[in-house]
């Protein structure tokens, strides 16, 4: 599996700042709706619901919010870079500026776990994260995320 198979170039966004986790999820919901036609309020609710079971901030400023949603036929991702980090109640209490949301169909076997492992492996790479943080152009970010070097480095 490669990141390019779950992430569309239009699903990479850069925001100056969002004021809360809820707003971040609303932005993600809007992007998911625009790129994949998923119902935005349902997406927000599912992400919040999953978040209430345990925060998805994995540390080092990275969050991987995810949820299952009806009406999807494959795992899809939304990447958001925040210029101003957001308090996310992550495990290391560090605020978050990189969020990679994953939305999976309700019945998806192990695909969703593979996708989660791939994204988490990719974003665990400090050099890649540093490059992502230095770039505020969505098309460059997409190229960085999907370039073979980043996958190999992982």
């Amino acid at each position: 599996m490669e990141l390019s198979s779950i992430l569309k170039p239009e699903a990479v966004r850069v925001y100056a700042a969002v004021s809360s986790k809820k707003r971040l999820f609303q932005e993600i919901g809007d992007v998911a709706h625009a790129c994949h036609g998923i119902n935005a309020p349902d997406t927000v609710e599912a992400l919040l619901e999953r978040e209430s079971l345990g925060p998805t901030g994995v540390g080092h400023g990275v969050a991987l919010p995810h949820a299952r949603l009806p009406g999807l036929d494959s795992v899809v991702g939304v990447f958001v870079l925040l210029e101003k980090p957001l308090d996310f109640s992550a495990i290391d209490r560090q605020s978050v500026d990189i969020a990679f949301a994953l939305l999976a169909p309700e019945e998806s076997g192990v695909e969703h776990l593979k996708a989660l492992a791939l994204v988490s492996r990719t974003l665990r790479e400090p050099t890649l994260c540093a490059k992502l943080r230095a770039n505020h152009d969505p098309s460059k970010l997409y190229a960085l995320l999907t370039s073979p070097t980043s996958v190999k480095a992982a």
């Binding site: 999953r50 079971l53 345990g54 925060p55 998805t56 994995v58 991987l64 995810h66 949820a67 299952r68 999976a104 969703h112 776990l113 989660l116 492992a117 988490s120």
Partner: peptide
């Protein structure tokens, strides 16, 4: 009680 990151 929290689920870990791979709870989907």
């Amino acid at each position: 009680l929290q689920v870990s990151i791979d709870f989907f």
